Every structure is written in C-alpha cells, then in structure tokens.
Simulated assay, not measured.
Amino acid sequence: MDDITLGVIGLGIRSDLVELAHRPGEGSTVAAVCDLDPRLLASARERFGPQVRTAQDHRELLDAGLDGVFVLTPDHTHERIGLDFLAAGVPVFLDKPLAITTGGCDRLLAAAHKHRTPLYVGHNMRHMPVVVAIRRLIEQGAIGQVKAVWCRHFVGHGGDFYFKDWHADRRNTTGLLLQKGAHDIDVIHWLAGGSTRRVNALGGLTVYGDITSHRDRSGERMTEWLSTENWPPLSLTGLNPVVDVEDLSMMQMQLDNGVLASYQQCHYTPDYWRNYTVIGTEGRLENFGDSEGAEVRVWNRRSDYRAEPDVTVRVHTPAGTHGGADPVLVAEFLRFVREGGSTVTSPVAAREAVAAGYAATTSLRDGGRPVDIAPVDPELAAYFAGGQR
C-alpha cells in the first residue's frame, strides 16, 4: 500500500495529533508543514524527516499534491484555510470547532459540497471511551427514551489553558461557550439524537476579569506556563493582554426532537472533568470521571437517595491522548481519505454544535434572551449524510 501524503497547517500543541499519522512506509507520511513561527518550522524536519516541505503561508501548499491536510491552527483561521484547501480539492481535517460563527460553518459545508472535497471535523470526544459507553447504554435501552441531558464541565485548568493566550480574546473564539463547549454540545446532541433549535444562556467574566497582571506570550506554548501550583485562581499572573471571554457560563437548549438539555462550564474549579447526566423514561445514568477509572452508573428502580446504582459499567481507557480517542480519530480520517464513506464524526453535527454555542453566546451577552437556530440547508444535510460521495 502506497503512503498517502499529508500536510499540517499549525505546529502548536495540537500538532502532536499528526505524529500519529506520520508512519512512512506504513500507509501515510507527513510531506509538508506550515506555521508562522520559524522556530516551529525549524523543528519540523526532526519530527517528520528531512524530506518535509515547509512554508509560512498555507497557500504555498495548495498545489503541493497532498492527499489530505490537517488544519490545527487557532479557531478564527479555520474558515479561511479550510475554504482554500476545499477549493483546491485537498481533503481537509479541521480541528474543532469547525468555525467561530454559524455563518462560517455554513460556508465551509457549502464549499465542501460545491467542490466535492471531503471534509472531516476533529470531534474526538465521539471516540472517548466514557462517551462511547454512555451512548451504548442509551442504544441498548438502559434508561428508555432520552428526555433530558445535563452536562457540568469543571475546567480546572481553565486559567492556564484559556486565559493566557489567544483563547481569551473573543475575536479569536467568539467565546469559550463555543470554543470549549463545542465538544460537549456535540456530545449532548449525539446522546440525545437531535440538534438545538432554541437556546438561552447566562454567563460572565466573574474571576479572571479581576486580575490585572498581563503578558504578551507570542511564541510561547501553553506547556511552558501550565502548573498545578497555579492556585487559587485569583493568584494567576500573566494573563493575555485581552481578556473578554466569559469564565462562567450556563446554557439551556431545546432540541428539534423535544429533548431538553443544559450545559454549565466553569474555568476556575479545583478539579478538571466533565459529568453527563442522561434522564430517560425508564431511568437515569451518570458518569463519574471521564478518564481511566471512570464509571457509568445507571439507576432504574424507584427509591429515596441511593448511592448504589442498579448497573455499573467500568470504563477502560486505552493508550493515547484524550482517553485513547485521538488514535481512533486519526485512523478514521486516514480511512476516510482513502475510501470515503460515513464517519462517526459529522461536519453537519459539528456545525450544529457551533450554532448552539454561537447562539448561546449571543444570548448571554444580551441578557439571556432566547435565540432560535436555523437548521442546515436540507441539500447540504443530505449530501453529508450520504457519506460525501
């Protein structure tokens, strides 16, 4: 089997993902990379071999004969870069979120359809073992018909992860309810079997807005300042020069199939994990932990408070980042490039996650008023549902 040749746009932290795809002689090889930082470009040959082509402008690689490209750049650049490669006929892996506006997502979907270029979105949580276990229980009827989904996301490292670099500036993300929340909103939709059509939200910059220590970290990577010793939250220093995204957000969703859902996100909790609760007509399930040692517990009998569930599913986490999800994600994209067909991730679902997060951010910045969300164009939805043939 000949190697497919891959490009990488963006050599930051998330580019570790592509090292899973660089297997010269085993099916795929990284042939070209692009980044604005010359220091990261200088390290590319050590990572991917002396043959790798380097560029500081992604447009230099549009005609490089690539079989696929990973776009792993800051969120606000996804749309422009994705549109260029889709128009050039190069299959695209776009890391989540698909874009930072609903309109941006729709333009990307339309471009993939127009040019018949495969588009894949990196919603790796659809491959996370704890999420897979929850979905399997739902499909098996463990709690009957789903009626409600709640998610609480405790972003314990939020100050380091999202308030010391470009994430803190809404021009780059719209807001963290979209940027960080796109993962969980997609999972909520997947577990509920529907998409949000109406949303309202409240939130604010409740802690990190009080910190006056700022620093330009251009050229630095998050691993250089991340520390579990950065605690309590108000002791943090060196925040991004612009901090205008919310650190506490709560949204409520009405889905097109009647399911009601809620999502809460806090960036200054002492712990870092997410908790899903799914309520159905015949029971309730909930995850405790979301990595190695996690459990999904199911309650099916009437009672007063009862800590002991009726069913406990222990979740094994295989090797690999994001609970073993990233190796599966990359393998799915490579198979998609070679063969096409359906995938567990979905560009339309990725759009719906952004649309919900975008509408929720609009709502919370306008006093919590309800915001309606238009569905994807039916022709586009049918095209992607058909496997992008």
Rank of each mutant, 00 (worst) to 15 (best):
V187L: 01
L226V: 02
A148W: 12
Q179E: 13
D3G: 11
L239P: 13
D244L: 02
H78Y: 03
D84P: 02
V132A: 15
W273F: 15
P370H: 10
A21V: 08
P347Q: 09
L178G: 03
A32M: 08
R274N: 10
Y208A: 04
E19V: 00
T269W: 03
R389V: 05
R197F: 03
L364E: 15
W273E: 12
L178Y: 02
E26P: 01
A42G: 13
F154Y: 15
S262K: 00
H22Q: 08
G122A: 12
L329K: 11
G219F: 06
T223V: 13
I81W: 01
D326G: 00
R126G: 09
D57N: 14
A31T: 07
L20R: 12
L108Y: 13
I373H: 12
H183N: 07
A55Q: 02
V354Q: 06
E79M: 05
T174Y: 14
V146E: 06
F85L: 08
W166Y: 15
R135G: 15
L329F: 11
G387C: 10
I143T: 12
H127D: 06
N275W: 01
A111F: 07
T312R: 14
I134C: 07
G49K: 04
T173G: 04
E60S: 11
R170H: 15
I211H: 00
W190Q: 05
V315P: 06
V371Q: 12
H167L: 05
A42V: 06
R215L: 08
P309N: 10
P375F: 05
M251P: 00
N300M: 08
D244T: 02
D16A: 10
E139S: 14
V199H: 01
T343I: 06
R301P: 03
R14F: 13
A44T: 02
Y358M: 06
L205S: 02
P270T: 05
D75E: 14
D160M: 14
N124I: 03
D16K: 12
L239F: 08
S249V: 14
Q145G: 09
D184N: 13
H167E: 04
V298Y: 12
A360F: 06
V315L: 11
L41S: 05
L137P: 10
H183P: 03
Y305M: 02
N275Y: 01
S363Y: 02
Q179L: 08
P50K: 01
R39K: 14
F161K: 14
V30K: 09
M250L: 13
L11S: 00
A87N: 06
H267F: 15
A44S: 10
L86Y: 04
V121M: 04
T345D: 08
L255Q: 08
A111N: 11
D210W: 00
A44H: 05
N230C: 02
Q388M: 07
L94I: 12
Q252V: 11
I185P: 04
A353T: 10
A32C: 12
L17K: 09
V330A: 11
P24S: 11
R351L: 10
L62G: 02
H189T: 03
F336W: 13
V187S: 10
G386R: 01
R53S: 06
A133S: 15
R59G: 07
D95A: 05
G258R: 02
I81T: 04
R198C: 04
A168N: 08
R221V: 07
